[in-house]
C-alpha cells in the first residue's frame, strides 16, 4: 500500500472499569478497500469501531480522518464527518417506523412555508427515498414502510440499519456484524451491497465472524486479539484456517504484516 490511509488509529486504549477493551490498538483503513476485522468474542472489535465512530471516548490514543486528527464527542460528530456505522445493536428505535428510523437526525423538511417556518417534515419524500434504498437492498418484502421497526423480524431490522448506513455514508462505512441475523439470501444482498459501495470508491470496515463472507469480500483482514491488532493478513495469501488460528492464538502470525 503506497496510498495514505483514510482512517487511522494509533495506540487506542479503552478501559471499562477494570476491563481493558482496547489495549494500545492500532488501526488503518485505506481508501476504497474493504477491511475485515475478525476476532474472538470479547476481543474488542466493537469497542474499536465505537471509538472510531464516536460512540465511546477513548482514554488514550489518536484517531485521524484523512490525515486530520479528529476527536468525536458523539456519534453525530462522526456522522457529520462522513463516517456511517451499523452498530451491532443496530441503534434502531423500536416504536418508530422504518422511515423515521432511516432519517432520524437528518429528517427532510418540506420545501415551502410550512417546512421553513413551522419545520414540517416532508414525510412523502422521506418515504420515497427510504423505499428506494430498501429495494436496492432487496428488502421490499417489508409491506409497509410506516410500520414500527419492532414489528419486523431480526433480519429485516438489520436490513434497515444497513440500508440507513449505506444510504448516508459519504467517506467511510463501518458495519459491525451486519449479516449476523440475516438469511442466506439477505446476507448475499449485503455482500453485494458492500461490493457496490466499494465500487463507488468508498471504503468499508466489516466486522464479521463469518469466514467465507470475510474471505469473499475483504481486501485485507485485521486480526484482533486481546484488545489489539495482532496482524493484518491478505486473504489471497492466507487460508481461513490460518486466520482462525491467529485469531484464537493457536498459531503465531508469520509472513503477515505484523502490527
Amino acid at each position: 500500500m503506497t496510498q495514505k490511509p483514510i482512517l487511522t488509529g494509533r495506540g487506542l486504549v479503552k478501559h471499562y472499569g477494570r476491563v481493558t477493551a482496547l489495549d494500545r490498538c492500532d488501526f488503518d483503513l485505506y481508501p476504497g478497500e474493504v477491511l475485515a476485522v475478525i476476532g474472538d468474542n470479547g476481543a474488542g472489535k466493537s469497542s474499536l469501531i465505537k471509538a472510531l465512530s464516536g460512540a465511546i471516548q477513548i482514554d488514550e490514543g489518536d484517531i485521524e480522518l484523512e490525515g486530520q486528527p479528529v476527536n468525536f464527542a458523539s456519534p453525530l460528530d462522526a456522522r457529520d464527518a462522513g463516517i456511517e456505522t451499523v452498530y451491532q445493536t443496530l441503534a434502531l428505535s423500536p416504536a418508530l417506523s422504518i422511515v423515521d428510523n432511516m432519517f432520524v437526525g437528518r429528517e427532510i423538511r418540506k420545501d415551502n412555508f410550512m417546512g421553513r417556518y413551522l419545520k414540517m417534515l416532508d414525510q412523502k419524500k422521506m418515504e420515497e427515498l427510504a423505499r428506494e434504498k430498501l429495494s436496492d437492498l432487496g428488502l421490499m418484502t417489508i409491506q409497509n414502510i410506516n410500520q414500527a421497526v419492532e414489528t419486523l423480524s431480526g433480519g429485516q431490522r438489520q436490513g434497515v440499519a444497513v440500508a440507513r448506513a449505506a444510504a448516508f455514508g459519504s467517506k467511510v462505512i463501518i458495519m459491525d456484524e451486519p449479516t449476523a441475523a440475516l438469511g442466506v439470501k439477505e446476507s448475499r444482498r449485503v455482500l453485494d451491497l458492500i461490493r457496490d459501495v466499494k465500487a463507488k470508491g468508498m471504503p468499508i470496515v466489516l466486522i464479521s465472524h463469518n469466514m467465507p463472507h470475510v474471505f469473499e469480500v475483504a481486501d485485507r483482514i485485521h486480526v484482533h486479539r486481546l484488545g489489539r491488532r495482532l496482524c493484518v493478513i491478505d486473504p489471497k495469501e492466507h487460508t481461513m484456517n490460518d486466520a482462525v488460528a491467529y485469531m484464537t492464538g493457536a498459531k503465531a502470525p508469520e509472513g503477515a504484516e505484523a502490527a
Binding site: P75, R79, V104
Partner: peptide, 13 residues
C-alpha cells in the same frame, strides 16, 4: 423515550 442509547448512536443529541 423509546431507547435512549439507540437514539444517541443514531445521531440524536
Amino acid at each position: 423515550g423509546d431507547d435512549k442509547e439507540a437514539a444517541e448512536l443514531a445521531g440524536i443529541r
